[in-house]
């Protein structure tokens, strides 16, 4: 029983009130996959971190700007792309360090990238000063198969 790739694209204003919308939209999109609660929570949390970053760092909550999400899945993996055309990150190695943050007043400061890395199987980041940021998060779906082999 092979599953053909399913795809969705989503775009929404960079307002913090849309963060929980984006997280649930991605969860609803993958809901046919019969995931465990842990897997879904991991995906939602990682997406949430990336979306929050796009809204508060990338666009500094300028609601006239748009955050883009693109998600797809097939039998083997789920991939979620989160993109903004905002400020970008000048030094990504530094930004990925646990506890590094340019907004220390926020909750869970500096742990966004660490959470994304730990909750997903891979993360790809394309960014640069004034060039915006594009994050691709991937979760493999075939782990259980390996266990039974």
């Amino acid at each position: 029983m092979e599953r053909k790739k399913n795809v969705m694209n989503l775009e929404f204003s960079a307002r913090s009130e849309n963060e929980s919308f984006a997280r649930v939209a991605v969860a609803a999109f993958v809901s046919k996959l019969n995931l465990t609660l842990d897997e879904l929570e991991e995906i939602k949390t990682a997406v949430s971190e990336a979306v929050t970053n796009a809204i508060i760092h990338g666009y500094e909550e300028d609601a006239s700007k748009q955050v883009r999400i693109s998600a797809c899945y097939d039998d083997e993996y789920i991939e979620v792309l989160i993109e903004d055309h905002g400020t970008g990150i000048a030094d990504i190695e530094e930004a990925r360090q646990p506890l590094f943050t340019t907004k220390p007043e926020l909750e869970r400061s500096g742990m966004g990238f660490t959470i994304m890395e730990n909750f997903m199987d891979s993360i790809e980041i394309v960014t640069g000063k004034e060039r915006g940021t594009r994050i691709v998060l991937r979760k493999n779906l075939v782990k259980d198969k390996a266990v039974y082999n």
Binding site: S31, N34, L35, T36, L37, D38, E39, L40
Partner: peptide, 10 residues
């Protein structure tokens, strides 16, 4: 074991 299915928890 983290195997509770999403459908049940929802």
């Amino acid at each position: 074991d983290g195997t509770i299915k999403v459908s049940r928890s929802l």
